[in-house]
Amino acid sequence: MKIVIAGAGSVGRAVALELLDHGHEVTLIDKKPDQLRVASVADAEWVLADACSPEALSEAGLREADVVLAATGDDKANLVISLLAKTEFAIPRVVARLNNPKNEWLFNTSWGVDVPVSTPRIMTALVEEAISVGTPVKLFAFNSAQAAMYAFVLPENSPIIGKSIADVAFPPRVVLSAILRDGEPFAPQADDQYESGDELVFLISARGGQVLDALTQMVTVPLD
Rank of each mutant, 00 (worst) to 15 (best):
G7T: 10
G9C: 09
V11A: 11
A16H: 02
L17H: 09
L19A: 06
L20M: 11
E25F: 02
L28C: 03
D34M: 06
Q35N: 13
L36F: 01
S40F: 01
S40N: 06
L48G: 01
D50S: 02
D50A: 10
C52I: 12
E55L: 14
E55V: 12
L57K: 00
S58L: 15
G61E: 01
L62M: 15
R63S: 11
D66Q: 07
L69D: 02
A70S: 15
A71F: 08
A71I: 02
N78L: 07
V80Q: 04
I81H: 12
L83Q: 14
A85T: 03
V94I: 02
R97H: 12
N99R: 09
P101R: 05
N103L: 06
S110V: 09
V113Y: 06
V113E: 11
D114M: 07
T119K: 13
P120E: 09
I122D: 01
M123R: 11
E129F: 07
A130K: 14
I131V: 15
T135K: 14
A141C: 07
A148I: 07
A148R: 09
L154G: 03
S158P: 08
S158M: 07
P159N: 09
A166H: 12
A166L: 11
V168S: 09
F170E: 03
F170S: 10
F170D: 05
S177V: 15
A187P: 03
P188E: 08
D192H: 14
D192C: 07
Q193Y: 06
S196P: 10
F202E: 04
L203W: 08
A206K: 13
R207T: 11
R207M: 14
G208P: 02
Q210I: 00
A214L: 11
Q217H: 07
V219T: 05
V221K: 15
V221W: 07
L223P: 01
D224I: 04
